[in-house]
Amino acid sequence: MPDVPPGAPEVSRKRGAGSGPPPEHGPERKKACWGILTSQGSWADRSPLHEAASQGRLLALRTLLAQGYYANIVTIDHVTPLHEACLSGHVACVRALVNAGANVNAATIDGVTPLYNCCASGSVGCMELLLQNGAHTHTTHSHFPSALHEACKRGSSQCVESLLSHGADPDYDVSHLGSPLYMSCLHQHTACSKILLHRGASVNVGRGGDSPLHAAATQENADLVSLLLDYGADFSLRDGNNRRPVELAPRGGKTQQLLQEFEGSPRSLCQLCRIQIRNLIGRSRLEHLPSLPLPPLLTHYLEYS
């Protein structure tokens, strides 16, 4: 079987996805099995349709679909061809599969969806196609992998923007990961954090007792810490070990110095007013700020622009 394309993200290809059928399966056995599998939609090892989708071979993909291959054929771990096309970022293949009836919300046995794989590969084109065809921004089970968290982890700011524009909750909580903002801060992605905060993400909601500010301070990221403080992060919060963010910052570093200076002086009236007004407006209405009959200067002030 062909090797996995170089540079493909090492995620979401479940066991069986990278190996062919057991040695004892001869050509005749495979031929007989495919007849049953394509007609009944049962589970299968990695099919030619999976291979074509993974490698972006659009002509081969269309040929297989025209020959009657089931668009939703799955491996033993429920990986579909659409999962593969999204993971490799092949927009044309995703479009062909969706047009052939591929389930945009198909989930593997581990809860991975095609939308999640779009975030893993950073393919906004594939993501937009899925969202336009009914892909859910969140899964039905909170412990399943979250597309928004994956985008924040990988620093895919365009994916984060796209998900939020299609109704994703910026405070969507996954128990073992925390909030998307916490994930973004933990991996030092300032651009993703700024998008989340601009969209109204709760600046103090993290994972358990750890706030996003705790995560940013630990990583010695002064720009990220400054961003969080500007959006109203509480520097006095204590984590599960009863430590404040300033106590987690590397000694003598810029982050520790910034936090110490901030603790020593109150927020400006300008900051306090902006935070309070944005809270009163509410997250769901923040996107409508530009349409309000306000002077541009005031609109920019409330939008942090």
Rank of each mutant, 00 (worst) to 15 (best):
E220P: 03
H143I: 10
P21F: 05
L227H: 02
A60M: 06
L58M: 04
G134K: 09
S268Q: 09
A8E: 07
D210Q: 14
R57C: 04
D173E: 12
R238H: 11
G209T: 03
Q276Y: 05
L258G: 02
L227R: 01
R267C: 09
D230M: 06
S236Q: 10
G18V: 12
R15Y: 08
L286D: 04
A216N: 08
T299G: 13
V11M: 08
I109F: 12
P5V: 08
N105W: 03
V205M: 15
A249E: 00
I109H: 15
R283V: 10
G206N: 07
F262K: 10
P27T: 00
L163A: 06
P295Y: 02
H149L: 01
N241S: 13
T75Y: 07
P23L: 11
P2R: 12
V124M: 06
M127Q: 12
R251P: 08
K153D: 06
E220H: 09
E247W: 04
V104H: 07
P250N: 01
R251F: 11
G26Q: 06
C270K: 15
L197W: 00
P23I: 05
C119A: 15
R13E: 07
D234C: 09
M127A: 15
L115S: 05
G41V: 06
H50K: 01
L196R: 03
K31N: 05
I275S: 01
V79I: 11
C33E: 15
L302T: 01
S179F: 07
L259K: 01
V225F: 10
A147W: 05
G208D: 02
E10M: 13
D77S: 13
Y172L: 09
L302Y: 04
R57D: 14
H187L: 03
G111H: 09
S47R: 00
V79W: 06
H149W: 09
H214Q: 06
